[in-house]
Computed example of a mutant assay.
Amino acid sequence: MKQVFLICAHKDIEQLNALVEALRDPDFIVYVHLDRKSALDPAALHPSAIRVAPRIDVRWGGFSQVQATLVSLRQILREQPDFDKVIFLSAQDYPLLPNELLKRELMRLQAHELLETAPIRPDGWNVGFRYQFFHREGGGKLERLACGLANRMLRLTGQRRRMPDGFAPHGGASWWALSRDCLLEALRLADSHPRLLRFMRTVQCPDEMLFQTLVMHSRFAERVLSDNFRYVQWPEQGARNPKVLDAADFERIRASNAHFCRKLDSQASAGLLPRLRQWKESRAAA
């Protein structure tokens, strides 16, 4: 069964192309969304990758991240009539399994949606502030002032925003692997609930909420395995970004059950990448 990989990239064409090359396989289809504001040259992209169009100017923590994903998924679903899952990656991910083993693992998990998710509430994922108050992505001085005044009124009155249309907020990591049917259902829900998408435009880090909320509201909720099989190391609780992995992290990565690790940098991770490649080659030969 075919698998589709969607890579979102904003820098380092060599690292991006190395990831595409690592995934080059007759059973894998690779799509790449290039951040519109990045200096990446589309002409330099690996020839086996399919470019997403239109390109979105992606801003961290804003709705543009969701917009880029939605544009990419609609193109994939339009162009690829038959596949198992879309595996969503950043260009700073690295595969830990040789392709044949990765294919077997994905087939073993075929009945599941691989989506890290938890209810957003004090006894769950306690980040309610991300949607209970207004967040602006860009905008002019007056828009930022209006946003600040609205949040001040919410705090003074003790009120909090709620998700529209009866959706229960869920959240988790941006990176997932979801089946074609699940994605079709998620996009159908998004299209039939425009108030939810408008609401998400004023949420902080909606890329870590929208798909979790949609899937857990759908008939696919019972298929969810709350594990995206990524090795990620957070430097401290509440950190905005995960640690850039280096050679000192190799043994912890090897002890994990992850399919991919992140995040890597071609310079900071220069001592780690050869060890990961060697380990992956040894697993392919085993």
Rank of each mutant, 00 (worst) to 15 (best):
L6M: 12
I7V: 15
A9S: 12
H10W: 13
H10G: 09
D12W: 01
E14A: 11
Q15Y: 11
N17E: 00
L19D: 04
L23V: 10
R24C: 11
R24V: 04
I29F: 07
V30I: 15
Y31C: 06
V32A: 04
L34R: 03
K37D: 03
L40E: 00
P42I: 04
P42M: 02
P42A: 03
L45W: 04
P47M: 04
A49V: 12
R51D: 07
V52H: 05
I56E: 09
V58H: 03
W60C: 14
G62K: 06
S64P: 05
Q65N: 05
A68Q: 12
R74N: 14
I76V: 15
R78S: 14
P81D: 09
P81L: 05
P81S: 13
D82I: 00
D84F: 05
F88H: 11
L89W: 10
L96F: 08
E100Q: 09
L109E: 02
H112F: 15
N126E: 15
V127I: 14
Q132A: 13
Q132F: 03
F133G: 08
F133Q: 14
E137L: 09
G138P: 05
K141F: 13
L142H: 05
C147A: 09
G148N: 13
L149K: 01
L149I: 12
R155T: 13
Q159G: 06
R160N: 06
R162K: 09
M163V: 06
M163E: 03
H170T: 02
G171Q: 02
G171Y: 01
G172H: 00
A173K: 07
W175V: 07
L183I: 08
L183R: 02
L184M: 13
L187M: 06
R188M: 12
D191H: 13
P194W: 08
R195K: 12
F199I: 02
S218P: 08
V224G: 01
S226H: 10
D227F: 00
E236T: 13
A239V: 14
R240N: 13
N241V: 14
K243A: 13
L245W: 12
I253E: 11
R254W: 09
N257P: 01
R262Q: 14
L264I: 15
D265C: 06
Q267H: 11
A268T: 14
A270Q: 11
L272D: 01
L273G: 11
L273F: 10
P274F: 02
P274R: 03
L276H: 10
R277A: 05
K280E: 02
S282E: 15
R283K: 15
A285S: 09
